[in-house]
Design a protein around this nucleic acid. Structure first.
Lengths: 191, 191, 191, 191
DNA sequence: TATGAATGAGTGTTCATTCAT
DNA sequence: CATGAATGAACACTCATTCAT
């Protein structure tokens, strides 16, 4: 059986993803895990602490799979960037209800409310931006620094697409948007 | 007095914008308006109803200024699209803290939770998409229908930019992103 | 058009009958009458006052139709007592939902809560008891005073039957019970 | 502690008996028990749920003492029926204020409002009716089915007597009424 | 490690009543 | 006579957190 702490963390993550931070209660989490209430406060000092751990978990996943994985491969930068979109897309494609981006959701719900939440989220986007810019540099020959705005725009496009997915519940629109992004990657590469 | 209802609505709008729907309590609103608790329920049947009125208000503002205003002008479509970005930008530029897009925020917090919230928000984005596509048609000569994906991408770019503004609190990045969008409008027009 | 005061009184009576005193709100009443809130407090000093007026109304109806009507007729006392049951029965027979006795309901909800409610209700039952005892005297030849316990039992039987009607929603049981009562009247007369 | 739940249930029962369901607030109950508000909702999902538990408690008491107790004894049916009245009488005799029948009160306040309340109350009266009819059968030789109307009348008499006790606050009248009932039992047995 | 009873401030909502017009 | 805006206490219910076992 999996670790109790991990079980709680997983349940917290899923519930926050679906119902938001404020919409998720400790009891919701414990109903999901089947553990007693004391266990939650034994492993996490508070709801906020557990939620920060959820964010930390997202950071680690993105770092492992995206920053240090896909975007650090020795493949062509074009392939990397496209693969990034495919990785994100496949994460949503299998779902019946589209809840948007787990990280983007937290940004909107929490970053204006509490600096402790905002900071790690900002750092994650900042790291991703730099990594994308690196790939763009390999593609364009420009300095990483000069590609930062373009990388920012790419992240914005991804986040905006997932936001629209959440409100339209239309997966095709997400695919079409990512296809446009891929085309734009190719154009950048051609120059 | 007609004024009280509007005062409540305004306070509700501002508080939801800053603290989110779930994060805003009726007492928060009443503290802001200085009215008794009964007044809230005299004018609105519930918190949800008042919040739907807030959404409705956003819809009307966008329709008046953006859909029927800026994007329906007899000016060149390129000017219209650029002006749209300027209008949005100016809305945020004056603030000290950047709370992102009031409509996008609601999408993320509420659209997976309650269909009654999701529907009007989806409709608003759908109307905007069509209007942007019309301007793109005037620019490209293509049918409106063929420009819908591009319009979708533009909205995604705007929403994503405002989401990143919320987490980075960096207005320059927003400006830079909107500049990139404007450049892309021009390129589309050139073809 | 009927008097506003009377309209309010009628609505109050019906709503209290169906939903009880505590279950009926001033707004419920005004929704029913279509009048403004000020009108209620113009005609009645409080909810309690209006409800006492409702009780008073019931008292007057019973006095007119039952005490000074049916039970004071020059007919045979047996016919009077039977007619009393028929009058009560016909009041319920036409309904789709059986709410029990409007007076008995108030007894149970209010008489332990407030002496101001209890007193007029007790008086009404006391007057009825005496009147029934008078009819029994004409039937048995005994003094009125000696028939008071029997009269009390008759009222208890009526009230208990209507209470059971409310919980069983079975009109036939009420009819059957009243038939048994009529038979007992006849037996008393035979002796 | 198991005790807390029972304390809350007891307080709920007593308060509803004295002040009615709608007249009893959760805070009333907690003031009585001295526990925090969360405890009420820890043990009961809602006020309604706690009240249904109160009803269930009454059902069990009647079943144990009356249906499976007094009315199921191997004594003579006459003795059983008389003992039933004595059992009910003794329940009220010791009180200073007479609040009527705890079950009958709930019938009148709640059975027209909510089916969930009405059903168990109806069932209880139905079970009692059958049990009384069984005793009457032993007394009269008639089939149980034929004695159901008479049993219904007996329950009506009891309930009506307790209703009148509530409004008159006259214990003697209750005793006198029950004496009349006992006499009628004897007459039935003689035939 | 683990349970779940206990707390109390807080949430959305209702309501009788008052009062300016 | 009549309207309906305004008040604030009370109501049922939720929740993050604590703590004894």
């Amino acid at each position: 059986m999996r670790n109790t702490k991990e079980k709680i963390l997983t349940a917290t993550e899923q519930l926050i993803y679906k119902k938001g931070y404020t919409g998720t209660s400790i009891n919701d989490i414990l109903d999901e895990t089947g553990t007693g209430k004391g266990q939650f406060y034994y492993y996490f000092g508070s709801k906020k602490e557990a939620s920060l751990a959820v964010i930390d978990n997202h950071v680690k996943i993105w770092q492992k799979h995206l920053l240090n994985g896909i975007l650090s491969r020795d493949e062509s930068p074009l392939a990397n960037l496209k693969e990034m979109l495919d990785w994100i897309y496949s994460d949503h494609a299998q779902k019946k209800i589209y809840y948007g981006c787990p990280v983007g959701n937290l940004v909107i719900e929490l970053s204006a409310l509490d600096e402790d939440f905002r900071k790690p989220l900002e750092q994650l986007f900042s790291d991703l931006q730099k990594k994308i810019a690196e790939n763009l540099s390999a593609l364009t020959g420009l300095l990483v620094k000069q590609n930062l705005p373009a990388a920012h725009a790419i992240i914005a496009q991804i986040q905006g697409s997932l936001l629209l997915l959440k409100v339209t519940q239309d997966l095709n629109a997400l695919e079409s948007n990512f296809d446009l992004l891929k085309t734009s990657f190719e154009k950048v590469g051609e120059k």
